[in-house]
Design a protein around this nucleic acid. Structure first.
Lengths: 341, 341
DNA sequence: TACATAATTGAAAGCGCTTTGGATGCCACT
DNA sequence: AGTGGCATCCAAAGCGCTTTCAATTATGTA
């Protein structure tokens, strides 16, 4: 069943039927109802490909999903996607997901954009000096970046959390508790959020004349295994750190395993603050020792970015081009005074 | 830059250029090279919408993502998607994800199919007597189901794991260890896998003249909170169960918290076997007491289903229409002899 | 009554691609 | 010379929709 058939069935022109369906004012209400009823009865649905070809609009948001045989799936990605979806479903938008090798992000993004399959792009996993930004700007397709790109003029639409302040504040709390030996379990070193969080920590330490040593820094993918490995390394140092900043509750999961295995007590021997993306699976309050965290909901960010993207496509109300969300510092039981040793 | 412009630039017809690009044999090799070179230089990319309208093929797989404001994101979904993606990227396929309210799965699926946006459908979260099957069959669009639909003639393409045998075997192991009081922490009661796992357990118990009481059964969404709640309930029973079968490591996470909080020892006071979807975040061997599990990789299933879907669309080699994967029963430390009390 | 105006509806031209059904020229073969 | 076959190439017809421009009818005004 297509427009032509439907219009013949109704004894109307394709034009009128099309107008009736798309809510144009110049069509008689009686006819519109007749059309709508026929649509119900026949189950007619416009062909999206044709619609897109005619209008240029696709009603879809494109994103690249990094994936490869060895590449571990990322809960953060899924959580964010859920947020995007929550908003998209309200506007009858869908996603086009292009799976791509993490090494070919630029290419994948370009292919997605040029394919004509999407109206707007969403970009995540931002790096320092990210090469995708130049490409995106040259593309004349709306986009919103989740995160920012360190070292690049911030003249593009983004939504980011204030990573630097988050870890600065977290470090300050631990400093006030008397800690002086810090360690950082961070995400991959080239990613923007990792750079900023590290900077935040270093700034806070610097104010007290302290430094963050290489020994006490780990940059890894954010899995619990890597958390375990990193923490084991820290615990074997002669000058064992007592204060740990951790970029994800996923890393914390492994880190805490290591702490327990070493027979140490979290919140006493070791204080730990993790960044909490509000993953439903890893609630900080559910850890055996509830976790002190810097918190910002990944899903909420997804909803917000979808809002901005969709309203841009629909040319609706103006949204701020740049948003920087504060994180919350929530104190629970994994932080305590520095041990007297 | 479109086909017309490109062909004018080359002094060729659109026909020839199109054929050159799509590998048709009736074009002079010299001309083809000329075309290919021009494509490189101009950066021309065919418009997918037009291509699709003309061919009917979209190079994409459609799936419905259940989502709603209160709806918690599901790690299982993300993990499966990663598997699909891993395979799709090899064939330059992408996904069209239609977010939809969990109550409107049928409608969302139909809309997705009729939209003309996808070549094939993937369907998950199967229920008993699932109404989507009739719809899918009437659709004349290739599809593969992950799971099956209990109570329906299995005459559709599916990939499932042998849930019944998995839990039957798991229960047998616990019976051999002397357990007689069983409990089941299952997924939502209407879902196919939940029905089958329950049946497997009941069958094993039946052979020993045992029954599964309602008190000792919980059907919930598979989050760690629900696992905690269910286990707390079980532990307060007069005749406390000593053997727990658990449909997900996510549920197990909460369940084990409850066990610990009650001051009981996993593997001694309480034996637990969980089904392990091989989620990177929840490795059974990383639990404080490593978990005995029935195992089957969700991601591998995703890869396989993508293979079948894509090869069907490309009309390539024949794949079996129906696959039933065995699960592995892997014994670790969360199971032990029934306590003598 | 005549004419301007508003309210409806349609015909047809695209959107950018694939593909059918010829053309055209060149060669070998009878 | 005449014919069939082959290798190349092209014109034009769709695919199913939106939208411009124009036509028709109904309504109101002078």
């Amino acid at each position: 069943m297509n427009l032509k058939q439907l219009s013949e069935l109704l004894g109307l022109s394709q034009t009128t039927v099309s107008r009736a369906l798309n809510g144009y004012p110049e069509v008689n209400e009686a006819t519109r109802e007749r059309v709508l009823r026929a649509v119900k009865e026949t189950g007619y649905r416009p062909n999206k490909a044709a619609q897109r070809l005619a209008t240029g609009k696709a009603g879809s948001i494109g994103l690249v999903m990094p994936t490869a045989p060895g590449h571990q799936s990322d809960v953060h990605f899924g959580e964010f996607l859920t947020g995007l979806g929550e908003e998209a479903v309200r506007h009858d938008f869908h996603f086009v997901i292009m799976p791509a090798d993490p090494d070919d992000e630029v290419g994948a993004l370009r292919r997605l954009a040029i394919s004509g399959n999407v109206d707007a792009l969403f970009v995540a996993y931002m790096r320092g000096h990210d090469p995708r930004l130049a490409m995106l700007k040259s593309l004349s397709m709306p986009f919103v970046v989740h995160g920012r790109s360190f070292g690049t003029e911030p003249d593009y639409p983004y939504l980011d959390i204030d990573n630097e302040t988050a870890f600065y504040d977290a470090a300050r709390l631990l400093l006030q508790l008397g800690h002086t030996r810090f360690a950082l379990m961070n995400g991959p070193a080239h990613l923007d959020f990792a750079i900023r969080r590290r900077n935040g920590l270093i700034a806070a330490l610097g104010e007290r004349g302290l430094e963050l040593s290489e020994d006490c820094t780990s940059h890894t993918v954010m899995t619990d295994e890597e958390g375990l490995i990193a923490m084991e390394r820290f615990l074997q140092l002669a000058e064992r750190p007592t204060a740990i900043l951790c970029s994800s509750t996923v890393l914390a999961l492994g880190a805490i395993r290591a702490v327990n295995q070493a027979g140490l007590k979290l919140g006493e021997d070791i204080s730990l603050i993790a960044h909490d993306d509000v993953l439903p699976l890893l609630k900080p309050e559910n850890f055996s020792v509830p976790l002190t965290t810097t918190r910002s909901s990944l899903r909420a960010a997804g909803v917000r970015i979808a809002q901005r993207l969709i309203s841009t496509v629909k040319q609706a109300g103006p949204f701020p081009e740049q948003e920087l969300w504060k994180t919350e510092l929530i104190v629970r039981a994994s932080t305590g005074p520095a041990p007297q040793s």
